[in-house]
Structures are given as structure tokens and as C-alpha cells.
Simulated scan of single mutants.
Amino acid sequence: MVPRVIFGRGSFNQLSELLAPNRLSNNAPFIFLVDDVFRTNVNITSRIPIAYQDKIILVSTAEEPKTSQVDELVEDIILTSKERPSGIIGIGGGSILDLAKAVAIMLTNEGNAEDYQGWDLVKNKALYHVGIPTISGTGAEVSRTTVLTGPQRKLGINSDFTPFDQVVLDPELTNGAPKDQWFYTGMDCFIHCVESLHGTYLNAFSKTYGDTAYGLCKEIYLDGNLTKKETQDKLMMASWHGGMSIAYSQVGVAHAMSYGLSYLLGTKHGIGNCIVFNHLEEFYPNDVKLFKEMLEKHNINMPVGICKDLSEKDFDTMIDVALGLEPLWENAIGKNWKKTITRKKLKELYSKM
């Protein structure tokens, strides 16, 4: 679990005092990985507490995080820092938070990021790292994984060393998020809860968090009686609770199949989950019905036909990626999932998207 978290409007202003006790020396910088969408947003960049040798690295999130991107960031940090950094601070959405976690791990572990894609492969404690989400829903601020696309697969670095040492939850930072992104990222949280609550890994701990986040998502996306501030506050809490729910259980069908879309087509995580979930009535009938109501209420037009021109080889690639995520299928279907989740079944589902 994340050992330290603060929540509240304006809590971003406490960042300097949070970081100060963790500075190793004047020559050991804090590295701020910041979504480059904030390049001209002085409300965020001007408030980052730079001192001594600290450095801001603006990172593009046009594509999903890649293992090669992690390796490049690590090399740049090593070559431009006089000493090992004091810490890595990620400021942005799920992609930036995942990159921050991965870079913190790779600064203390040998090899390349792709070597650690899997479960419990990390040997050394990560560098001190802090997560500051600027959009809510991914759960990346609390999860024990950092999802990366590698040369062979899309898979997280799942380990006890992955979670942040400190998280700052400031709902004010979510101001200005585009409507579509707000919806797709929030639905990532909703889908986390559905897959956790209907999974075979479910336990009392994960259910408590999942029930809370699920209820908040319904209130935010269906009731429509909240102020903007209430919506921001509650969605940030839904994201946290949804992330905690899957941290103690697992996700399921939508995530497994969306990884295939992301690996082959570069589909962003939130929208990829939505594209898949829209066709999963067989697995989550009541929740897919609710999801369609949310789409209609917020006038969201999702992409269609993204798989219509794919070759047999392309389908095989997506299916290979999806089937490689065995814990997700076991959680969704049970230990005998291979009897029902066949290549033919997955191709039929992908063909609808």
C-alpha cells in the first residue's frame, strides 16, 4: 500500500515541505516528470518547487508508455545528474504516473524495463517516488503495477516496490480536463470496480473498496446532481478506491482484451477499455447496460469499426497479448477459463469492435 497520502484542494502547495526531508544532498536532484500538456499551464508548472539541481522533464503522452521510453528517461537522468536523484515525482495522468513508477524502479535495478514486465521480478527497492494525478480514474496513483508496452507484449511491472511512497491528491489539478478524457478515464475506474466485484479473486478487503468506488461512479455519471467541485472530489476518491480494490484482487475481461488493442493499434487505455466493455454483455450484463446509459447521458460517441480492416496476423497478435494475461482471465472466469476463452471466441469479440 501507499504509505503516505494527502488529500485536499490546494494540497499541491505542500509539495516542497513533503519533499524536503527526502532530499539526499544538494547535488541529488528531484526529477519531475510532467505531462507536456502542461507546458503552458503556469497554474501547475510555476508551482513546482524547483531547487538546487532539480529538473523538470516534459513528457509526451500521445502514445501509451513504452519500455523503451522508460529506458531513455533513465539514461538521460543518469547522464545529466551529478549524483543519484533524491526522487522521481510524476505529475499527470495514468501514463505519467506509470512512467514515474517505472523510472524509479529502473534507477535501482540493472537491465532494461522489459526485463521486469511480469509479477514480482523486481529485486531492489525503487528510488523514492511521488505520484500527483491531474486526472482521476486510472487508479495508477495507488496500484502496484506500471503498465508498459514492450517489444513483445503489453504488461505491467507488478511488484511490492512499484507503489508510490507519497501521493498528493489535489482535485483542483483536474480542472480543464477535456470531457471525453474525463469520461473515458472515469470509466476506467468504473470498469475496475465491475471486474473486481465480479471476479473470483474477490475478498472482503477488495469488495469494500470496490463497492465504494462503484457507488461513487454511479453518482457522478448517472445522478447528475453534483457541483463541479463535488464531482472532482468524488471522482478522485473513486479512482483511489477503485485502484485499491484491484490492488487486492484483479481486473478482468475488458482489461485483458484492451491490452491487445493497445499493443497493436496504440489505443489509449481508458478508451480501449470502453471500446471492449461495450461488447461484454455476456460477462457483465447489468453493468454494460449501466455503461450504455452513461454513454447516452454524456453524449459520448465512441470509435467504431477499429478492427474491421485487420488481417488474420493482426487478430492473432491481439489475441496472443490478451491470452498472455492469465491472472486476469482466472479472476474473470475461474481456474478453468481456458475451456471457454478460446482464440475463436476472442476473434469474434474483437471483430465487433
Rank of each mutant, 00 (worst) to 15 (best):
V37C: 13
Y184P: 02
I44W: 09
K82R: 14
E195W: 07
H241Q: 06
F38C: 01
V321Q: 12
I135R: 00
N331A: 13
E141W: 00
T138M: 10
I306G: 10
I246S: 01
E75G: 00
N43T: 08
T227Q: 03
I300T: 01
T146C: 14
V59F: 02
V167L: 06
F315E: 00
L197H: 05
I31K: 02
G156E: 00
K234H: 07
V2I: 14
F283R: 08
R9F: 11
W119H: 13
N112Q: 15
F315C: 03
N299K: 06
E281L: 04
Q53N: 08
I271H: 00
V194D: 03
I271Q: 05
L155G: 03
L235G: 10
F205K: 00
G93I: 13
I57N: 03
T340N: 06
A51Y: 00
K339P: 00
L310M: 05
K352W: 12
N158V: 02
N273A: 06
L261T: 01
K335L: 11
E219N: 10
G186W: 01
E326T: 10
I191D: 05
A28N: 09
D120L: 09
G131S: 03
Y284W: 09
A322K: 15
Q53G: 04
K82S: 08
N27F: 14
P285T: 08
A62L: 10
V122Y: 05
I300D: 00
G111Q: 05
Q250K: 13
F205D: 09
M244H: 06
E296G: 03
S311Y: 09
A247S: 14
H255D: 01
N158R: 13
G118A: 10
C307A: 14
G324P: 11
K313V: 15
F7L: 03
Q53R: 13
V304K: 12
T67K: 03
G305K: 01
S206N: 04
T208K: 00
A62S: 11
N336M: 05
E293M: 13
L222R: 03
F32W: 08
Y209F: 15
K297E: 05
T231E: 13
T267Q: 06
V304G: 10
L265V: 07
K292F: 09
I319Q: 05
L33H: 00
Q181T: 07
N336C: 04
C274L: 01
K179F: 14
K123V: 04
I300N: 02
G224V: 07
H129Q: 12
A213V: 12
S206W: 07
Y52Q: 09
V103F: 06
Q181I: 13
D115Y: 11
K228T: 12
L325N: 06
L107Q: 04
D180S: 08
F291H: 01
L346Q: 09
G8Q: 07
I105M: 02
Y214W: 14
L15R: 01
I341Q: 13
G305C: 09
N273S: 02
K347N: 02
T40G: 08
H129L: 15
N273C: 12
M244T: 02
Y128V: 08
P49I: 08
K179M: 15
D287H: 11
V253I: 03
T174K: 05
